[in-house]
Structure formats: structure tokens, C-alpha cells
Amino acid sequence: MRRFNKIFTFLVFLFLYIPMILLVVSSFNQGTDMAVWKGFTFSQYGELFRDRSLLRLLGNSVLVAILSSLIATILGTMAALGIHAMRGRMRRIVLGVTNIPLTNPEIVTGVALALLFAFAGTMLKINSILGFWTLLIAHVTFNLPYVILSVMPKLVQMDPDLAEAAQDLGCTPFQAFTKVVIHEILPGIVSGALMAFTMSLDDFVISYFVTGSDFVTLPVEIYNYTKKPIQPKIYALFALMFGVILLLMVAMNLLQLRDLKRRRTKLTQRREPSR
């Protein structure tokens, strides 16, 4: 039974990775059709860096992801602190609203924001309001709940006496926050920010509805390949991103592991003298 489960798990991972392996293999293919192998080449990588059009779009995506996750992290952390201090009905209402973008399908969020921007455009008499700013607003909007939901549990876990103790010892509430509270909730803030960043970087559906033709992100451009011929250098970009993300993940895991070991040795060192 256990062996069967292991084989099954392996097959599922194979299922998940076959299309990605195919994309990476295609990045070395001379032809443009993924299904036909025409010989090995690096030319798509060369083309990717020579032409730079895709890199510029990737730059757009990264810019929006950095800015939106930064804004969402600041606003969201403040919001989590505020919600944490709320009680009763007010807390329920605010958490309920936080749930809306999470439960709502992306297409409805996208359509609703597109209608809002169209409305604002006619009010402000701007012809093409869709672009960088509308995209940024939309991304902040769907990133905010992720930040709040990863900071909130840390606040709930935190000992409420800590901040009070800091204030009793002469800290202003602001100092109590910067010296005590923020260290307690930092893991939640970091994981919320990372989640927001990745969500934003790969978002297609909402971006598709709120972006104009003068500021295009990478996923929206990839969608356009449905209507125009695919540029095979996109496979090279995919392969590079695959490699970079894999490396980042491995590095993060190794760092965590080292951290854990260090903490363990510290703990044992601390215990020793008392024995």
C-alpha cells in the first residue's frame, strides 16, 4: 500500500512537470513548433538578450510586483494591527470585506475594476485611463488580503503583555511597535510580502482586464500569442525563470536549515551552564 502510494505520488509529480520539461527542452529547439525537434541550439537565448522586447515586459511585471507588494505589505500590516485591536461586529465586517477578493473569482474582480476605471475615466475625461496606475491599483487590491492573512495569525499568537511591558518600561506606543511587536510578527510580514510578490508577478486574469496597450506585462503578452504567432524566445525566458526560481527556493531552504541548526546549538549552549 505504502509502495503504491509512493509510485502514485511520483506519477503525479511527473504529470505536473512534463509540460515544464517540454518548455525547457523547447528552448533549445531550432524549430518553433514544440512538437517537432529540429536540432539543438542556443540561438533563442541569444535572441532573447539581443531583442530585449520580452525582457522589457518582464521588467514591467517585476516593477509592478515590487511596488504593489511593497504598498500592500505596508497597508496590510497596518490593517492587521488595526483589525487585531477591533472587537465584535466591526472586526467581522472588515474581515468579511477582506475575504471578498479571495473568494471572488479573478475574472469578476478584473471586470469590476475595469468598470470602475472606465467610469473614473469618463468622470475625469481621460480617454485611455488603463495603464500602469490602474494595473498597480488592481495588484495592490488583490495582494492586500494575502498580507493581512499571513500577519494576523502572528498577531494572535503574540503575547499581548509584551507590548504593554515595553510601554510600562517607558516606550512610546510607536517605540513599543518598532522595538517589540514588529520582531514578533516579522515572519508573517515577510511571508505575506513574498506571497504578494509572486501572486502579482504571475497574475494574468486581473491584469488582462485593467491594462492598456501602452503598459503590458509578460503574462498579458503571452496571452496575446493566442492571436499572433508565438516567439520561441519565450521558451528561453521560461527556462531561465524556471532555473532562477528553483535556485532561489533551494537557497532559501538551505538558509532556513542553517538557521535552524544555529538556533539549536544556541539552545543547547544556553542550557549547559544550568546543568
Binding site: P219, F238, I245
Partner: peptide, 8 residues
């Protein structure tokens, strides 16, 4: 896979 383009 969740971090890489679902379109591609």
C-alpha cells in the same frame, strides 16, 4: 509550478 506562467 505555481510560480511559473500557467499560460505557457
Amino acid at each position: 509550478p505555481m510560480c511559473l506562467s500557467f499560460l505557457l
